[in-house]
Design a protein around this nucleic acid. Structure first.
Lengths: 195, 195
DNA sequence: ACTATAAACTAATCACATTAGTAACAAGGG
DNA sequence: CCCTTGTTACTAATGTGATTAGTTTATAGT
């Protein structure tokens, strides 16, 4: 019994995502989305729960896409190769969706269950990738925090335009990830000595 | 010839900064600042250039404070010790001003000359701290990008509440910086072999 | 064709930002 | 001591965006 079907929630979110990637997340207003869709502002309320609801859907869509990219990048890989592959996928997502990336990584509120669940999926993949290094639980959690920090720091600075020197960004990222992998090996050595 | 002097630009910015640290940067509106100061909204225009102007002043204030902290932390130190000291100061700034930190690191527009100048001062300090490692220009620039990435990534995720596990954050940060320093040494070795 | 339902609309309200124009006050020169 | 000048705060008016209520309309299923 779906009646007049020209615009649905998906199309609204997709339109908003496109606007965010083109003009920045803050530039997404109900007014701009409505105009892009050729409808009046109040009509959007038939598809999303106002501006807060739309923003939530945008974050969720972004995080799901990121999770999928990371999962894909991690298939059949682990250890050093897996770290590099996941890192590249993470950065590629940010390049493809700069406007969405900035808010995708904002920590979800306790009541945003879907966001929390997808975030946990991503953490689980990182867990799997790092498993071959044989860390105990504590080392593993610190390593995951470090991995997330390295990825987010570079990508956030890069997409926000903070790196202004004329110097190859790919090479900077390659070295950063290389350094992180070196740190994993060093931690492995240290743990072996203690044992 | 200063007339009725109860409120000046500084007090407006300070009030806005306090609101940002308490409730988040987005929560700072001219309405909330005016109410906190006990004046009407239009009166603020005598001190700052509207909301965009206020936001600029807030970012500039934050970046100047960060630069000062980092400069102080770098006095009389270099190499591994300097890296650790600067890293701690950077993180301490973010803890002291979580609402301001998030926007302080946004890359300035080309016409925001003061912001660019202060940002460059910070880069200069990082340069000085890393000088003892003896990198050539290219290695140095990559190293600075990595340093900024590591600091920003951890601090941004931490202050936004993205690290939810019950695991000591200080220890995570200590290990992250330790790993970064290890990477600097590894790069030093690699450069020595090439030479 | 008829009806139920969902989508889109108009109208009204609210909050915030901004601009224009006005009133009041404080300091310095006569 | 008063008056001029410049600054600060104000009220009033306007515009944009978000939201809610209530209405109309198109379409899918009977």
């Amino acid at each position: 019994m779906p009646p007049r079907k020209s615009i649905d929630a998906q199309k609204v979110v997709q339109t908003a995502v496109a606007l965010a990637d083109a003009n920045g997340f803050e530039a997404v207003t109900l007014a701009s989305v409505a105009e892009a869709l050729g409808i009046r502002i109040p009509s959007l309320y038939n598809h999303v729960a106002g501006l807060p609801g739309l923003r939530y859907e945008m974050r969720l869509w972004g995080l799901r896409l990121l999770a999928e990219h990371i999962r894909r990048a991690a298939v059949g890989k682990s250890g050093d190769e897996g770290v590099g592959s996941v890192a590249s996928a993470y950065r590629a997502f940010a390049h493809a969706h700069p406007g969405i990336y900035a808010v995708t990584l904002r920590a979800p509120d306790p009541d945003e269950h879907d966001l929390i669940a997808v975030g946990q999926e991503i953490i689980d993949v990182l867990f799997a990738i790092l498993r071959p290094y044989g860390f105990d639980d504590e080392d593993m959690l610190h390593a995951i925090r470090a991995f997330r920090s390295v990825l987010h720091g570079f990508v956030d600075l890069e997409t926000s335009g903070a790196f202004k020197m004329a110097l190859d960004l790919d090479e900077s990222f390659r070295r950063l990830v290389e350094g992180f992998i070196g740190g994993l090996h060093a931690r492995q050595q240290a743990a072996a000595v203690t044992r």
